[in-house]
């Protein structure tokens, strides 16, 4: 089962994932038409500002198991898709009670009018892991547009393995055995990040 893995240290806050997500969940699936659609297509991933300038975090549904939102939904509108392991909301069953948002520890559920729901009201909307795209063998839209690998699609075990590899390299550096291929962030990029933190701390004085 594949999932979207987030590398927050790589997020540059460009919000392209948000745009791609909204377009993917539009009726036309075309940026230039989507901006004119009613209801307005909405993203299901949110690039949140970090603690300081020049940091950001792409926040989306983790498709938890067990999923708190699913457990508290009083109409059974939230279910888990068995084959792809995706927590999905059937907006047509939503009564907008907001219980799901209240228990989601990641704050990824919003209330919008949705083109796929023929009700004249807002309903709970969240990431569906681009289930339609996955069925076509594509990666989720947010991952496709992320050019900095802040969002990666893959098997969690594989990703964890490569993350463990990265960690091992870091440890080897810490113990003095410097690995030549350590994927360090470029120094100027780190300087850019650092400015955000420094200026923030100066302002808080």
């Amino acid at each position: 089962m594949k999932t979207v893995f987030v590398n927050p240290e790589r997020c540059v806050g460009c919000m392209q994932c948000q745009v791609a997500c909204a377009v993917e969940h539009s009726q036309s699936k075309n940026l230039y038409q989507a901006v004119f659609e009613v209801p307005k297509p909405r993203p299901r991933i949110y690039v949140a500002p970090g603690l300081y300038l020049n940091t950001s975090f792409p926040n989306k549904c983790r498709h938890c198991d067990p999923a708190p939102c699913m457990e508290v939904c009083p109409t059974g509108a939230i279910t888990r898709n068995a084959d792809l392991d995706i927590v999905v909301i059937d907006g047509n069953k939503c009564i907008t009670c907001a219980m799901c948002a209240m228990v989601c520890p990641f704050d990824v559920i919003r209330y919008y009018e949705s083109a796929t729901v023929k009700l004249d009201k807002t309903v709970a909307v969240k990431c569906d892991h681009c289930i339609d795209r996955q069925r076509q063998g594509k990666v989720p839209a947010c991952v496709e547009v992320c050019k900095v690998n802040a969002l990666v699609f893959g098997d969690p075990n594989e990703i964890a393995k490569s993350a463990a590899g990265r960690l091992a390299k870091l440890v080897s550096v810490a113990t003095g055995a410097i690995h030549p291929e350590l994927p360090r962030l470029p120094a100027t990029f780190e300087a850019w990040r650092k400015w955000g933190e420094e200026s923030g701390k100066v302002n808080e004085r």
Partner: peptide
């Protein structure tokens, strides 16, 4: 001092 910021959220909590 950030809890009531309009954009308080995961971006604030995770780095913290």
């Amino acid at each position: 001092h950030r809890l009531l910021d309009p954009k308080f959220g995961m971006g604030t909590v995770i780095p913290y």
